[in-house]
Design a protein around this nucleic acid. Structure first.
Length: 508
RNA sequence: GUGCCGUUAGCUCAGGCGGUAGAGCAUCUGACUUUUAAUCAGAGGGUCGCAGGUUCGAUUCCUGCACGGCACACCA
């Protein structure tokens, strides 16, 4: 059990006292309210407008014009004035002021109202009115304690600042930092806009396994778990890709999935081991269709969150107005660094060519890793306005289709906004023989120490052998999109419960 | 994983060249029937992250550990 501080001890005593008096708040099962606080504020405004439009002369007499209301929420401020108490009541929609007077609730209830604590959940009913200072208020005639808060809340003015506590105790963060709730409203709107966008285009939302006996669809290390009854290790998925394409083989021509994926790697401002991925596949389409899809998705989500196609991210004014620019991956690197990866054919040549650049230690890096480093360092940070980076080399695109006339390149792109990659898309490789060779190359890379290489997936190859239509596919990190749209600079600001090491006191 | 920095009251933060600490909010007592970071008067509250070491004495110095932040590494 966690140790109690004196304030908690005091609150527990108050609860014990209530129980002795037969007023245990935890015995209450429901409270029927007539208004949320936001509804009540607009209802009060409506009364005022009616008064103004009618033959209303002068001030409203709230004793007659007011109306009965019942609200419920968390007590967030108490301003005791002796024979009257002002309180702020917060609910999910906002807040409302309560005015409790001795005359309105009676001597006994008035005294026990004063014994309530900040954080207590109460329901209150009474006459709605607006104070002289303009605050919509309920003049309480009856109230009920619905749940006792046994622990004191963080400070009302500064809120909860400690980032560790904010993430560990997100409930507290949500109670005292109203802007946090806004971010998660934006997140919900984003996901709803994504669904609307796909649904309108005739896509079917599906769920594919999160626990898999074989992982794939991305270059990442998986988490391993164990199924006891089957006595077998399983992997948490790193991507839904290979399952979704099996569905396209099965005739589900337009599918998408929004769900968690898990990657066993470091944690930082842009990475959480579990994050939310969107993937979509469209039969008879190619990667250029996916570009349009990205443009449509970003526009729809930005409208849903910010009501505009332009927004500010890290000081940059960004416009999502389509069409977005396109640049070729290797040309952009050539342009920025003078290194032309298309002319480099071995790891050694690539290392030679990169000597003059500031890439840190390169001994372990091959051609592909150096290309990545060059791009990340010299090109990506400048891709502020939405840009499709195209034509990825086949070596680093094991699931993407080649260009017939340029077989070393794939019909693949990654969109960048604000200097950050927000997704990945390509024309899907549907040639089972080519796919087998790509897997074999991955398996070789794995044997040579690439921990993120794909394993061989015979069933996926068999599915391709039944025939995958030409298909365009895309993936997007939903959390990063929400970061972008909300101006957040840390992924954990848009994930309700980001991963943390266990807190010593709370585990046995 | 490596390096640097941090951890002081429920919360937000000061402070201490080694002699066990302060403020604001919150809490408690009292005053106050239009307040809203209410106000006024008074009071209580601390294993200074944990464990060792040095020392007459450690919250302060040293070492280790835990958790967190930032950077790098790994990685979308």
């Amino acid at each position: 059990m966690l140790p109690d501080d004196p304030q908690t001890e005091q609150r527990k005593q108050k609860l014990a006292q209530l129980r002795e008096q037969g007023q245990d708040p935890f015995e209450i099962h429901a409270y029927r309210r007539s208004h949320t606080t936001a509804e009540l504020a607009s209802a009060i405004e409506a009364v005022e407008q009616e008064h103004e439009q009618g033959d209303g002369d002068g001030a409203i007499d709230w004793d007659t014009a007011g109306f009965e209301t019942a609200v419920a929420g968390r007590l967030m401020a108490l301003r005791d004035q002796g024979k009257s108490v002002w309180a702020d009541l917060h609910d999910a929609s906002g807040k409302i002021q309560l005015w409790v007077t001795r005359d309105s609730v009676g001597e006994e209830a008035f005294e026990s109202f004063k014994r309530l604590d900040l954080g207590d959940i109460i329901g209150a009913s009474g006459n709605a009115f607006r104070t002289r200072r303009g605050e919509p208020t309920v003049h309480v005639s009856e109230y009920q304690l619905l749940a006792k808060a046994l622990r004191p809340l963080p400070e009302k003015f500064h809120g909860l600042q400690d980032v560790e506590l904010r993430y560990r105790r997100r409930y507290l963060d949500l109670i005292v930092n109203p802007e946090v709730r806004e971010i998660f409203v934006a997140r919900t709107r984003t996901i709803r806009a994504i669904r609307d966008c796909f649904d309108a285009r005739g896509f079917q939302e599906v769920s594919t396994p999160m626990m898999q006996s074989l992982y794939g669809g991305a270059n990442a290390r998986p988490f391993v778990t164990h199924h006891n009854a089957l006595d077998m290790d399983m992997y948490l998925r790193i991507a839904p890709e290979l399952y979704l394409k099996r569905l396209v083989v099965g005739g589900m021509e337009r599918v998408y999935e929004i769900g968690s994926v898990f990657r066993n790697e470091g944690i930082d401002a842009l990475h959480n081991p579990e994050f939310t991925m969107l993937e979509a596949y469209q039969a008879y389409a190619d990667y250029t269709d996916m570009m349009e899809l990205f443009e449509a998705l970003l526009c729809a989500t930005a409208e849903a969150v910010n009501g505009s196609l332009t927004f500010t991210y890290r000081g940059h004014e960004i416009s999502l107005q389509p069409p977005w620019q396109r640049i070729s991956l290797m040309e952009s690197i050539h342009h920025a660094t003078g290194v032309d990866f298309e002319q480099l054919h071995t790891d050694e040549e690539a290392r030679q060519a990169c000597q003059q650049l500031d890439l840190g230690s390169m001994e372990k890096d091959g051609w592909a890793a150096l290309l990545d480093k060059c791009f990340d360092r010299y090109v990506a940070p400048d891709l502020i306005q939405p840009t499709f980076v195209t034509d990825y080399p086949v070596q680093i695109s094991p699931l993407a289709k080649r260009f017939p006339d340029r077989p070393h390149l794939t019909a693949r792109f990654e969109p960048f906004i604000g200097g950050e990659e927000i997704g990945n898309a390509f024309s899907e490789l549907n040639d089972p023989m080519d796919q087998r060779e790509r897997f074999e190359a991955q398996v070789r890379a794995g044997r040579e120490g690439d921990a993120e290489a794909h394993p061989m997936d015979e069933d996926y190859l068999r599915a391709l052998e039944y025939g995958l239509p030409p298909t365009g596919g895309m993936g997007m990190g939903v959390d990063r999109l929400v970061m972008l749209l909300t101006g957040s600079t840390n992924l954990r600001e848009v994930i309700l419960f980001p991963h943390m090491r266990p807190e010593a006191d709370t585990v046995d």
